[in-house]
Simulated scan of single mutants.
Amino acid sequence: MMKAIPYGRQSIEQEDIEAVIKTLQEDFLTQGPKVREFEELFAKYVDSKYAVAVSNATAGLHISVLTLGLKPGDRVITTPITFAASANCVKYGGGEVWFADIDPDTYLLSLESTRKLIESKPKGFFKGIIPVDFAGLPVNLQEFRELADEHRLWIIEDACHAPGGYFIDSQNKKHMCGNGQYADIGIFSFHPVKHIACGEGGMITTNNEEIYKKLLSLRTHGITKENMSENHGGWFYEMQELGFNYRLTDIQSALGITQLAKNNGGVKRRNEIAEKYKNSFQGTIKFQSLPPNTYNAHHLFVIEVDDRKELYDYLREQGIYAQIHYIPVHTLPYYKKIGYQNADLSNSEKYYTHCISLPMYPTLSDEEQEFVIEKILSFIE
């Protein structure tokens, strides 16, 4: 019998293990040189000026909204089809979350729905937008930047699904997810089912030096040694603002460095898997569309079916552990109590009734994928 096939999983090889062991034998387990090395390599990889490693992507989202000046009562727009953290970060800062609908084919935050929501309110009503590169598909941030500039809004790109993804703008320039050209800040996740596994961890990217320095401060309790003079000893530091302990360790960074080096190969393999799914399901089963001039990093491969619960149960009986991404955030009990009854989020709600994420990870074998495809097609037929 075929072994259990999850929807996603990490790939830890001998070189990853050796890198962690070597770090365990060094002087620094945290706040050491590996963190900075990882940040520099990651910034270079996504083509941003700065990168700040954090304990997880949720922490990164939290200090990012604070860095961009979120105040209690400020309103921020995001998508309902995302993990709750994309919205929760606004609540952490005392802000209000407003949801715009998704595009029914790409499953990304709809530019038209976002524009309609913004223009339904007075100027200055909203402060920012958090678009999500859902499933690894990049949002066209050039279009969102034009909208944001028109209404003086900031943008945080939630790129947790998309390291290695990119889109090509109207000037024929390639933009890696999180490169900071159109968004003020980019956020990445290093959870084990993501492309780069650190156990837990995250990275914030930006091209703005002022934002970068603020992020560094908030990551470490708001403490700095920058103002130390010859009148102070080497122990001197100042806490200039209320920050947090959101640091990543050198152990995790060592693993992140070796994982990052393999990401291009991993994304290439993910796209090979996606193409095989598409060729098998074309004309039979709906799947996420790929806009022109866009390269999907494929954290997920999502299909839509009419009898989703039955397919989900059937696949589990076959040892295929598909998953659902995501329950729309506005329907979760906490957000439901806030009240979104009047919001037009019909595309998101319809998507949720049909969506199911299939196995998608670089070490998925051809034999395993063929087994998954065979079982799905036999169920549909």
Rank of each mutant, 00 (worst) to 15 (best):
F38G: 04
F38M: 12
E39R: 04
E39T: 13
E39C: 09
E40D: 14
E40C: 10
L41G: 12
F42K: 05
F42H: 06
A43S: 14
Y45G: 02
Y45S: 12
Y45W: 04
D47W: 05
D47P: 00
S48P: 00
K49G: 03
Y50Q: 04
A51E: 04
A51G: 08
A51C: 15
A51S: 11
V52I: 15
V52T: 15
A53H: 05
A53R: 04
A53V: 12
A53S: 15
V54F: 02
V54H: 01
V54P: 05
S55A: 14
S55R: 09
S55L: 12
N56I: 11
N56V: 09
A57S: 13
A57T: 04
T58I: 15
L61Y: 08
L61N: 01
H62F: 15
H62A: 13
I63W: 04
I63K: 01
I63S: 00
S64V: 11
S64Q: 09
S64P: 06
V65R: 12
V65K: 11
V65T: 12
V65N: 05
V65S: 01
L66R: 14
L66V: 12
L66C: 10
L66T: 00
T67N: 08
L68K: 10
G69P: 12
G69F: 07
L70W: 06
L70D: 01
K71N: 10
P72R: 11
G73T: 00
G73Y: 14
D74V: 09
R75C: 15
R75P: 05
V76N: 01
V76E: 06
I77L: 11
I77R: 05
T78I: 06
T78H: 02
T79L: 08
T79M: 03
T79V: 10
T79N: 07
P80A: 09
P80E: 01
P80C: 03
I81V: 15
T82S: 15
T82M: 10
T82P: 00
F83P: 03
F83H: 00
F83D: 06
A84P: 11
A84Y: 07
A85M: 09
A85I: 02
S86T: 15
S86H: 12
S86Y: 02
S86K: 12
A87S: 14
A87I: 08
A87T: 01
N88A: 14
N88L: 15
